[in-house]
Design a protein around this nucleic acid. Structure first.
Length: 841
RNA sequence: GCCGAAGUGGUGGAACAGGCAGACACGCAGGAUUUAGGUUCCUGUGCCCCCGGGCGUGCGGGUUCGACUCCCGCCUUCGGCACCA
């Protein structure tokens, strides 16, 4: 087998070793690093100001099995930055742990008649070994699992704080229900096509009393601070969050309804179109519709409502269905025209957005136009469309008309105004009259956090007949999960915890009377919404986290993870941070100062999957090419945010390069510390320029280009050894040491091996970035390009400080330039010394 | 439909405060070393060509001495939102 040969050191014609034994090198350095612990973060170094901090974080994994290609990619990319920061002299906090509550463990336990912990902690042990073999620079002394009582005790403690502040509450409401997983889901966990983001089952609705976090309290701030994050977060994540929060500006307008004391308030973004309101529509499944309908119309209404309820969510999501509805038999008064308009119920109005009632303006809204057309309701335009407009409803800019229409008497007149002016005038009018007001609406809903499953954090609430919802006192936490296993965990639509009678039946902490525990567990996104706080004091058994240390280390300077969490985890964590700040537990507003969304690893143009049979095993790749080659391949393949198609890359090529770089270290014959200033100046220029550029490239997250520059330095050094001054030149040593240090960010084993062969002590990971000699960054001579009519005709070697006049003269004197000019009259010469001359004829 | 991002050789990708398009690799072709090669090294490699050159960064215009880069209009792909009033 050839891979065996690859592992065996071989020799070239000159008898020198031409490759190293990948397996032996890996085994050896792992134990050295475990003794040295080079990446242990020191609180004191930061507290005393001795070193500047950097907090590097990559999303902790769910322990679903061993690490896979996706993990390998994030860690490879993330590690470049974390290791770079160490080399630049920062004190780096780069922790790792496990997001270890969750459904796969529970489903496995049911299948195997086991406990979810068996699966969970077995996989954690496997992943831990793999992480270390993969040479990830994590501070392992800080690791924890969110399913440990030591951790979830503090998740519960935080829940108590949210509950105290009214940020955690229960309400009865129609909720998303996954029939496959037998649990409710948050809005964020239902995909755009109405399916469950975990299992793909079609999500249905249920009316249930559930726990919520009041994320909507922070809607405006969550939106506003996206502006601050914009420069350092990917556009697509900012955009996704903006869309998700979905702010709109408009007005609430009160419509007096006959036979009802309270007016009905509608929300509209176009108060300027109020004169065109010819009917009102309310959501068919709202309490309001049920209350308004007259006896005469009730039968038709209930028949319609039953029909709508039968339709699946998938059908309801289709936007191209014909409009349907029923007349409720009541009328409302248009507050500006006094006209009586009919009130209808329909399914195109959503019960849980705005007020669940809408003013029907068919002239200005396409949906209302369609409804009016089907139902035979009048249509009035209130904005003048452009002359060439041939659509139906017109929602664009234009002059306000028919407001009021000729012959209509109204205390408000907005005719002739632009849309914006008419909006403002209408709101002012309504506010003065007390029948309306400017309003802001958000699409964002409160976060539904209860789950009807076992393997999650228990909600620390007791329900007492006398005292109601009672928090379990902090000093009685953690409330541990009861021991359930195997078939006890089978989903049955209510939480499995309910079956643990002895656990459920308890006494009220307030009155001591009989009470029942809450049987739901928390969404696992709650666990991950604060884990980055816990890392600053992971073993503290007196508090969730140390506020001083959190303020010292935080916020996270770079967060690396997949964009599948663009809304979910990132939004929840941002909400938690703001809430904890308001509780005085931390002083930062945003958890992640910069965010890098890495691409996926795919194969042959498609997502890797078992059903397609195109999966690439990380273990196999590591076995065949070694850790360094796999890491290098992932870093070099593309910009970090792009997907990597494994079919397009070459781990064999990466290994070849690493061996080539390693061979350089065997050719160096000068002693450590040899003064490079006496060596080859051309090579020195390349070395220093590369170090300078590589640093900037890492800081700009352009890791693939940084690798390319390292390759160029290797090529240049090879050339000097083979055809120039040879391996004894101290400039060669300087270059090879630079290569080892740059490689320490990407290929830690090879770098370590090189460093040792260069006569140094481990570890190369902490030797520091070499100082760049600025004087070597200035070029001795540059190539000036001479263009004639914009086309390159000649290249001249010139001094970097050549004057414009001299450069122009040199260009015009050039023979090929003269030939290209062919006697034509020179009209103009543009000179950009020292790089370019363009001759215009 | 609305919002956002991106289109460069056979492939992954470089180069954009407007100034040498294709760095660095993969692949391919040829050569050297080798008993051998999934080894190592060297050379070539955008397309066309009458060998002087011509054409080339999704398409069509524009600004400029000069455009992959800026502006206008399209096309395609990907991502988010979507009967959200």
């Amino acid at each position: 087998m050839s891979s065996e040969q690859r592992e065996t050191p071989t020799a070239d014609a000159a008898g020198r070793e031409s490759s190293y034994d990948v397996k032996a090198v890996e085994a050896r350095w792992q134990s050295v690093w475990q003794d040295l612990e080079p990446f242990r973060a020191d609180d004191e170094a930061v507290r005393t100001g001795a070193k500047e901090k950097r907090y590097a974080l990559t999303m902790f994994p769910y322990p679903s099995g061993d690490l896979h290609m996706g993990h390998a990619e994030v860690i490879a990319l993330h590690d470049v930055v974390a290791r770079y920061w160490w080399q630049r002299g920062y004190e780096v906090l780069n922790p790792m742990g496990w997001d270890s509550f969750g459904l796969p463990a529970e489903n496995a336990a049911i299948r195997n008649d086991a406990h979810p912990a068996d699966y969970t902690y077995g996989n954690i042990a496997t992943q831990f070994d793999s992480f270390r073999k993969y040479a990830a620079s994590f501070d392992w002394s800080r690791r924890f699992n969110t399913s440990d009582p030591d951790y979830y005790r503090w998740t519960q403690w935080l829940f108590n704080r949210f509950h105290e502040k009214g940020l955690a509450y229960r309400k009865n409401s129609p909720v998303n229900w996954c029939p496959q997983d037998q649990t409710v889901l948050a809005n964020e966990q239902v995909l755009a096509d109405g399916t469950c983001d975990r299992c793909g089952a079609e999500v249905t609705k249920r009316e249930l009393t559930q726990w919520y976090f009041r994320t909507t309290d922070y809607a405006q701030e969550l939106l506003d601070s996206l502006d601050v994050l914009q420069p350092t977060w990917p556009d697509k994540v900012i955009n996704a969050q903006r869309n998700w929060i979905g702010r709109s500006e408009g007005a609430h307008v009160d419509f007096v309804v006959q036979g009802r004391d309270e007016p009905i308030t509608v929300y509209t973004t176009r108060p300027d179109t109020i004169f065109g309101t010819t009917f009102m529509v309310v959501a068919v499944d709202s309490a309001l519709a049920d209350e308004l309908v007259t006896d005469e119309h009730r039968e038709a209404f209930e028949a319609y409502r039953a029909e709508i309820r039968k339709a699946s969510d998938i059908d309801r999501l289709a936007t191209d269905r014909p409009k349907t509805g029923v007349d409720l038999g009541v009328t409302a008064t248009n507050p500006v025209t006094g006209a009586q308009i009919p009130v209808w119920a329909t399914d195109y109005v959503l019960a849980d957005y705005g007020t669940g009632a809408v003013m029907g303006v068919p002239g200005g809204d396409q949906r209302d136009w369609e409804f009016a057309t089907v139902m035979g309701l009048p249509i009035v335009r209130t904005t003048r469309p452009p002359a060439d407009f041939d659509g139906e409803a017109y929602a664009g800019e234009g002059e306000t008309i028919n407001s009021p229409a000729a012959g209509v008497d109204s205390p408000l007149d907005i005719n002739g105004m632009s849309v914006d002016d008419a909006k403002r005038a209408t709101i002012d009018f309504l506010e003065a009259r007390g029948t309306g007001r400017g309003a802001v609406n958000f699409r964002l809903r409160d976060w539904l956090l209860s789950r009807q499953r076992y393997w999650g954090c228990p909600i620390p609430i007791v329900h007492c007949e006398k005292d109601g919802e009672v928090r379990i006192p902090d000093d009685q936490l953690p409330l541990e999960l009861p021991e359930l296993r195997g078939s006890d965990l089978k989903p049955k639509g209510t939480s499995p915890l309910g079956a643990a009678t002895e656990w459920v039946e308890t006494t009220c902490p307030t009155c001591g009377g009989p009470a029942r525990r809450d049987t739901d567990t928390m969404d696992t996104f709650v666990d991950s919404s604060w884990y980055f706080f816990r890392y600053v004091s992971p073993h503290d058994d007196t508090q969730a986290f140390d506020t001083d240390l959190a303020n010292l280390w935080g916020p996270i300077d770079l967060y690396v993870g997949g964009s599948e969490h663009a809304v979910l985890h990132l939004l929840y964590s941002r909400f938690f941070t703001k809430a904890l700040r308001d509780m005085g537990l931390v002083d930062w507003d945003e958890p992640f100062s910069a965010y890098l969304a890495q691409g996926k690893v795919i194969n042959n143009g498609r997502k890797m999957s078992k059903s397609l049979g195109n999966g690439v095993s990380l273990g196999d790749q590591l076995e065949e090419f070694g850790v360094d080659a796999v890491r290098l391949t992932l870093v070099f393949a593309s910009p970090p945010e792009d997907d990597i198609d494994w079919a397009d890359v070459s781990p064999a090529g990466s290994l070849k390069f690493l061996q080539r770089a390693w061979r350089l270290s065997g050719d160096v014959t000068s002693e450590p510390g040899a003064a490079p200033s006496t060596g080859d100046q051309t090579l020195r220029r390349v070395t220093h320029k590369t170090l300078h550029e590589a640093a900037q490239l890492v800081e700009g997250h352009r890791f693939n280009v940084m690798v390319a520059r390292t390759m160029e330095l290797v090529n240049a050094t090879r050339k000097v050894i083979d055809s120039g001054a040879g391996g004894s030149d101290p400039a060669v040593r300087e270059a090879v040491e630079a290569v080892a240090i740059m490689l320490s960010l990407v290929a830690p084993y090879t770098a370590e091996e090189m460093w040792e062969r260069l006569g140094h002590q481990p570890t190369v990971a902490r030797v520091g970035w070499p100082e760049v000699d600025e004087s070597l960054l200035v070029e001795e001579s540059v190539v000036a390009v001479v263009q004639v009519k914009g086309k390159v005709r000649a290249r001249l070697d010139v001094a970097p400080d050549i004057s414009e006049a001299d450069l122009e003269a040199a260009a015009l004197a050039d023979e090929t330039v003269q030939r290209a000019l062919d006697g034509a009259t020179v009209r103009k010469v543009i000179v950009r010394a020292p790089k370019l001359v363009n001759i215009v004829v």
